[in-house]
């Protein structure tokens, strides 16, 4: 078995491509978020691999840690917004009903 730099890059390229495909083909917000996580994961994989291969561990690993933090924060914000949207669909109906009565 062999493992060269370009192999790893191709793995992450395919992962990134799958993420892009998922972003375009799914129209459900949460599915799109999952695809986004795949894309960010591809970037993080690239950073870790590049750090390991070029010997620049310190900056590459630090960046990868921050990338993971960002991805987590992004998921939190995105889910809060999605839940708010689903809630408002219900509450909007309530508002409309109240308006008609009043």
């Amino acid at each position: 078995m062999i493992l060269y730099t370009y192999h790893i890059f191709r793995v992450s390229a395919v992962l990134f491509g799958l993420g892009v495909f998922g972003m375009r083909v799914r129209r459900n917000a949460i599915s799109m978020l999952l695809s986004l996580e795949l894309m960010i994961n591809a970037a993080a994989l690239n950073l870790v691999a590049a750090a390991a291969f070029t010997g620049t561990y310190i900056s590459g690993f630090s960046m990868a840690v921050f990338v993971i933090v960002i991805a987590a924060a992004e998921a939190a914000v995105a889910l809060a917004i999605f839940i708010a949207l689903f809630k408002s669909r219900r509450s909007i109906d309530v508002d409309e009903a109240a308006e008609m009565k009043g």
Partner: peptide
């Protein structure tokens, strides 16, 4: 996107 990135890999520093 995937095709482009796949072929870009040829321009990477080649290291085992």
């Amino acid at each position: 996107v995937t095709w482009g990135l796949w072929h870009l890999a040829d321009f990477l520093p080649r290291k085992a």
